[in-house]
Simulated scan of single mutants.
Amino acid sequence: MTVRAPAPQAVGPRRRAPARARRRRGPGPLPWIAPALLLIALVVLWPVYEMVRTSFLRVSTSGFVRGPAGLDKYRKLLGEADLGRVLLSTVLWTVAVVALTMVLSLGLAQLFDQRFPGRRFARWALIAPWAASVLMTAIGFRWMLDRTAGVLNTAMTDLGLVDGPRDWLGDPATAWPWMVAVAVFVSLPFTTYTLLAGLQTIPGELYEAARVDGASRWQTYRRLTLPLLRPAFLVGLVINLINVFNSFPVIWGMTQGGPSSDTATTTVFVYQLKSSDIGESAAMSVVNFALVVVMVLAFLKVTGRARGEES
């Protein structure tokens, strides 16, 4: 008995699913991500659009638009005598605060990763600067450093360390170190816990294998801990770069960028310009936003290239 194979059927174009079947599948992911997209549009894109638009307008200090300004506000901004100093101060401020924060946070994270009496309470205590308002912390340090009623001047005068009260925040030479110290103080909790989370994801078996192979503690740290900690380190570094570059409460709460603009960064300079020319202030905001975008893109390119070389 011969069994014949079924004749091949002609292959035609695929038929679309009926409308009822498509409705049964649901509308897809759009309803779920629509609230997030709407929030991004309202909170990020719309303010950026308004910021750029305002930089091309003549706006009075009371907020009334007086007409288009073209590129006049950008020309006026480039002619500001304080702009170069403010840009340099912003770069030095960002590098100093981020570098100190990352180094100190790395040490604290490794300390809190060890077992010692009171570790839980030490971890809780580290959250305090993070939980408190940054502006409130800055104002508290400003009171402590006050020339007439500050605790620091009173204590140092009583101990004979200084001849008389010093204006710590009135002189840029002493104001900048204090502001850097406060910025590091409020940045430590987040960065430390980010690195601590990265340390705790490293399996203990890897350290045991390294000890069996005869690796020293420094070799284990350099060839095992640091490479595996790199993702958490990069997260903390990028977020700190953005936060510190755009930092406003610490500087405004302690010196308001003064005297003049000697202790101002670009973010504080934006606010100082607002009192005299809103359009110029918006132009400075556009420049500041562009600098942040360039900085982040450059950092991501460098880290992406390094990852490609490792793989």
Rank of each mutant, 00 (worst) to 15 (best):
D82S: 15
L229V: 14
T137C: 06
P177G: 05
W252H: 10
I251T: 07
A41P: 00
P203K: 15
G67W: 08
T94W: 02
R115I: 08
V11R: 10
K76W: 02
V95Q: 01
S247R: 11
V97K: 04
W218I: 14
P165V: 09
Q110M: 15
W32H: 06
G79F: 01
Q200S: 07
I278F: 02
L104W: 04
R223I: 04
M102F: 01
T154K: 11
F56M: 13
A41W: 00
A138N: 07
R123F: 03
L83Y: 01
L228D: 04
R23W: 06
E310H: 13
R211M: 04
P177D: 01
A264T: 10
A232T: 12
V186C: 06
D167G: 10
N240Y: 04
G214Y: 02
R85D: 01
R25T: 09
W252E: 00
L126N: 09
A197T: 15
L83H: 05
L169W: 01
A155H: 08
P35V: 12
L291P: 08
E208V: 14
F289Q: 04
S55N: 07
A122Q: 10
K76I: 07
V151P: 00
D72C: 08
R66Q: 09
G26I: 13
I33S: 06
N243L: 08
L92F: 05
V270H: 00
A36R: 09
K274V: 05
R15T: 13
I40P: 00
L30K: 09
W168H: 05
T154F: 07
M136F: 11
L145F: 12
S261N: 14
A21Q: 11
S60A: 13
D158T: 13
L224F: 07
A149E: 06
A69E: 04
S285Y: 01
R222F: 02
A7L: 15
V52M: 03
